[in-house]
Deep mutational scan, measured.
Amino acid sequence: MPSETPQAEVGPTGCPHRSGPHSAKGSLEKGSPEDKEAKEPLWIRPDAPSRCTWQLGRPASESPHHHTAPAKSPKILPDILKKIGDTPMVRINKIGKKFGLKCELLAKCEFFNAGGSVKDRISLRMIEDAERDGTLKPGDTIIEPTSGNTGIGLALAAAVRGYRCIIVMPEKMSSEKVDVLRALGAEIVRTPTNARFDSPESHVGVAWRLKNEIPNSHILDQYRNASNPLAHYDTTADEILQQCDGKLDMLVASVGTGGTITGIARKLKEKCPGCRIIGVDPEGSILAEPEELNQTEQTTYEVEGIGYDFIPTVLDRTVVDKWFKSNDEEAFTFARMLIAQEGLLCGGSAGSTVAVAVKAAQELQEGQRCVVILPDSVRNYMTKFLSDRWMLQKGFLKEEDLTEKKPWWWHLRVQELGLSAPLTVLPTITCGHTIEILREKGFDQAPVVDEAGVILGMVTLGNMLSSLLAGKVQPSDQVGKVIYKQFKQIRLTDTLGRLSHILEMDHFALVV
């Protein structure tokens, strides 16, 4: 994948999101292997301009796509893939009243899908469409860049269908997702969380590099694949309309690839034109409109599966009536509230959605109805927002919020430890010299600072030695090549209790 991002070429006709291997024109390309080798690009942008032909009021008969309808489940399912879809609609009884809503608040519980998330729908649909058009064949390999849930859905379907599955996901995604993927037989590649989507090191860039190296491999490409919004247009939206008897006044959905909100909203605009569509985008993402909503100094966020630093091709923002931004604290607070007060075992993005819903639905009156999409299960986040310690460490809970008995030293300040200034190293000294210094002084790690004293990161003896043994660096290389740029900081005025929580999850903390 090139470091400079080429513009994806656009073909003359058809839909841009065809499933299957992508040609340089962004659509299915038939021909000899030699032709494909000559024409197939190194990668295709996940934010390529959409060429979708959908228009409100256009006859369904003019759609270029294969459409399906929700099917009634048999008493005995032939395999677990038949437990994807037909998820329950559940009334939220307490939270709406707590925040003064007059309307009825309903939750579409997508964590009841077989793999635990709304992404099971698009995973199965992308595979079925690729099999139907002859792209996927027995023994082929599926590769997908994902925040985890699409990966789980694909790995689940691949396990049943017999495909090899490789999932490329950023490091910030939970260990629970990784464990589930491994249990399903998927191979996992992790990428830096802070890598831009168009960087060769991003999950998108690495996935395309693997595709170019592995024979008979395919990126189904949830960011561009029409099967993504079509899955929701054909099934999720129809289920909502049936469950609500066609009567709903507002739908609120958090947005990642945009397939969920695009597919549902398009069908609702056709069948229930008075329904307002509300999009939820986390602070630090750029999906919301108008652009002024996205202006923030924050560039990272903890909530998973929603928000991006690019506009995915499948996201149709014209069908969203209003956007709201959400933050991590309210997302996790509301997710825990949904679990504790409503018994809905949902993930953090569901918290984002409901946090926005109780604001947006203030305009609705008694007798009206708001539906929220709860995308995934708490299963993926047992060591994250479900953990009091994690919430404390991230600053989303305060010590006084917890009532468990603490040891005698818990409320003492870090400054009472009488710490001395640490050994520091410059980023320009060599790895070999740094190892000598650390061994001589008896230290395992040291902060790396520039000549102005600005902290650049941390270097550890173990990481340097393993990097040297693996051949990633040489003793003569500058130590700046092996620094940890993500590390926890703590102030002298913070409590030892807070430091204790940090050290339970990290090997060190830097006192500043």
Rank of each mutant, 00 (worst) to 15 (best):
residue 178 V to N: 02
residue 208 W to V: 08
residue 21 P to D: 14
residue 113 N to W: 00
residue 73 S to R: 12
residue 161 R to Y: 10
residue 217 S to D: 02
residue 272 C to L: 11
residue 16 P to L: 14
residue 22 H to Y: 09
residue 114 A to I: 06
residue 206 V to N: 03
residue 242 Q to P: 03
residue 73 S to H: 10
residue 191 T to Q: 01
residue 252 V to Q: 09
residue 262 T to D: 01
residue 6 P to H: 08
residue 35 D to K: 06
residue 33 P to E: 14
residue 223 Y to P: 06
residue 270 E to P: 04
residue 23 S to L: 03
residue 131 E to F: 01
residue 118 V to Y: 02
residue 116 G to Q: 13
residue 235 T to P: 03
residue 21 P to C: 11
residue 4 E to S: 14
residue 135 T to F: 11
residue 123 S to H: 07
residue 2 P to Y: 07
residue 186 A to Y: 00
residue 210 L to Y: 03
residue 184 L to T: 07
residue 101 L to R: 00
residue 233 Y to T: 00
residue 111 F to R: 01
residue 145 P to G: 10
residue 148 G to I: 00
residue 246 G to F: 01
residue 80 I to V: 15
residue 276 R to G: 06
residue 61 S to C: 14
residue 268 L to S: 03
residue 140 D to T: 07
residue 17 H to D: 06
residue 195 A to H: 06
residue 45 R to I: 09
residue 32 S to T: 06
residue 12 P to W: 08
residue 211 K to H: 06
residue 47 D to Y: 01
residue 146 T to L: 05
residue 46 P to L: 03
residue 178 V to D: 05
residue 114 A to H: 08
residue 158 A to T: 05
residue 203 H to F: 05
residue 240 I to Q: 01
residue 180 V to D: 02
residue 217 S to H: 01
residue 169 M to W: 04
residue 95 I to K: 00
residue 14 G to R: 08
residue 146 T to V: 05
residue 183 A to G: 14
residue 24 A to P: 12
residue 17 H to V: 14
residue 204 V to Q: 08
residue 218 H to Y: 10
residue 40 E to S: 10
residue 8 A to Q: 11
residue 195 A to V: 15
residue 253 A to Y: 06
residue 42 L to W: 07
residue 72 K to M: 05
residue 112 F to T: 06
residue 195 A to I: 08
residue 43 W to I: 08
residue 210 L to W: 04
residue 16 P to W: 05
residue 146 T to S: 03
residue 274 G to W: 14
residue 21 P to Q: 04
residue 122 I to G: 00
residue 76 I to A: 09
residue 218 H to P: 04
residue 108 K to M: 01
residue 237 A to W: 01
residue 190 R to F: 01
residue 269 K to H: 06
residue 181 L to A: 00
residue 178 V to Q: 03
residue 81 L to H: 06
residue 92 I to V: 14
residue 127 I to F: 10
residue 164 R to L: 07
residue 248 L to V: 13
residue 29 E to R: 12
residue 227 S to P: 09
residue 27 S to F: 05
residue 178 V to M: 10
residue 83 K to P: 08
residue 5 T to M: 05
residue 138 P to L: 15
residue 76 I to V: 04
residue 95 I to N: 06
residue 62 E to S: 14
